[in-house]
Simulated assay, not measured.
Amino acid sequence: MAQQVKAVIARAKGASVEVTTIVVPDPGPGEAVVRIQACGVCHTDLHYREGGINDEFPFLLGHEAAGIVESVGEGVTEVGPGDFVVLNWRAVCGQCRACKRGRPQYCFATHNAKQKMTLLDGTELSPALGIGAFAEKTLVAAGQCTKVDPAAEPAVAGLLGCGVMAGIGAAINTGGVGRGDSVAVIGCGGVGGAAVLGSRLAGAAKIIAVDIDDRKLAGAQKLGATHVVNSRTTDPVEAIRALTDGNGADVVVEAVGRPETYTQAFYARDLAGTVVLVGVPTPEMKLELPLLDVFGRGGALKSSWYGDCLPSRDFPMLIDLYLQGRLDLGAFVTETIELDGVEQAFARMHEGDVLRSVVVL
């Protein structure tokens, strides 16, 4: 039987979000209804509200979530009622050419729930990243539910659903950071901070955090940065080279998504080093680099989508490390709020006052 629950929606571009009642249908084949316990407020949600993703309003916002599976549809075997899960926006298909090659983290046909959640008048909602978790309950594809240890705090576990996983994965999965490496991270918000944390976890010897905000640099130090550079006052390429014996870093993670910072990352890496782009650019942005420099410097220029993660592999592992005290995921939770605090959380995010506000239900 369909349920009516409270949720946060964005009705129009730039309009303040609102708490309203939505309708969540019973799960169909391959689907699950999840009772949300916590959901982080991510920049992507703000992009949806501002029309920066698409114009398929109204949006049901929220996607960095953890909760309890309430019910499942026909054919679902991977999770069941009562399971504590972290939601992800990449339910793999198992049938595409990437999956069949044994590379499901690159699945080309990820999917979401087929049914739509609606407003009371029947207006269909577009769930953010196919999740829509600023809600008491949400409907997702069962493959979007990753079972993890229920001892984890929901407010912390849910952050793996997007930004934290993107940053950790950019360093470890995409960048291949290893013991003794030098790493530079340009842009130290939530994703960049997670790249710092991931580099520390991987055993990097030198982790250089670059940002224009001293508050974010201080946060990066708490997450494991060994050096910080304020690029508003210091040339970051020169600073990174100076800190790496004139060579440049083995891996540079660009977590801003702008041509200027990508160019800095390109020239701040060592010969045969790796640049990882995890910051999300806008459609109009263009990059111009001398092709001879691309050839002559060797190495790799990579893009990292969702940290090249495989949720079924990576989420449980990272939660285990968190519970062992080896991965300080709690450092990302700046504040906890209620559903009606999302609009204010967007304002604090815009001002750079928080790493993550987390809605706790």
Rank of each mutant, 00 (worst) to 15 (best):
M1F: 12
Q3H: 12
K13Q: 15
K13M: 12
G28C: 04
G28L: 05
G30C: 07
A38G: 01
G40F: 05
T44P: 02
D45I: 05
H47C: 11
G51I: 07
G52E: 14
N54R: 11
D55Q: 13
F57M: 03
L61A: 02
E64T: 00
E70Q: 12
E70D: 09
G73L: 02
T77W: 08
T77I: 06
E78S: 13
F84S: 01
V86A: 00
L87T: 00
W89R: 09
A91G: 07
Q95K: 14
C96W: 13
A98N: 15
R103D: 11
P104Q: 08
Y106C: 11
C107G: 00
A109E: 15
T110V: 14
H111C: 12
A113G: 02
D121N: 04
L129W: 04
G130Y: 03
I131V: 12
A133T: 12
Q144E: 09
K147P: 00
P154L: 06
A157M: 04
L159S: 00
G163E: 06
G167R: 09
V177G: 04
D181W: 10
V183L: 12
V185T: 00
C188L: 08
G189V: 04
A194I: 01
L197Y: 14
L197M: 15
L197D: 10
L197I: 14
S199Q: 13
S199A: 15
L201S: 15
A204E: 12
A209V: 09
V210C: 05
D214V: 05
G219Q: 15
K222S: 15
T226I: 14
D235F: 05
A242I: 08
G248Q: 05
D250Y: 13
V252F: 08
V252C: 08
V256W: 09
G257F: 09
A272E: 14
T274G: 04
V275N: 05
L277H: 13
V278G: 02
K286V: 07
L287D: 03
L289Q: 02
P290T: 03
P290Q: 06
G299W: 09
S303P: 05
S304P: 06
W305G: 08
W305R: 13
W305A: 09
Y306L: 09
G307T: 00
D308S: 13
P311Y: 10
S312D: 10
R313F: 05
I319V: 13
D320Q: 13
L323N: 04
R326T: 05
G330F: 04
G330M: 03
F332Q: 01
V333M: 02
E335N: 10
E335S: 11
T336K: 14
E343N: 08
Q344K: 10
M349D: 09
E351F: 05
L355T: 14
R356I: 03
S357P: 00
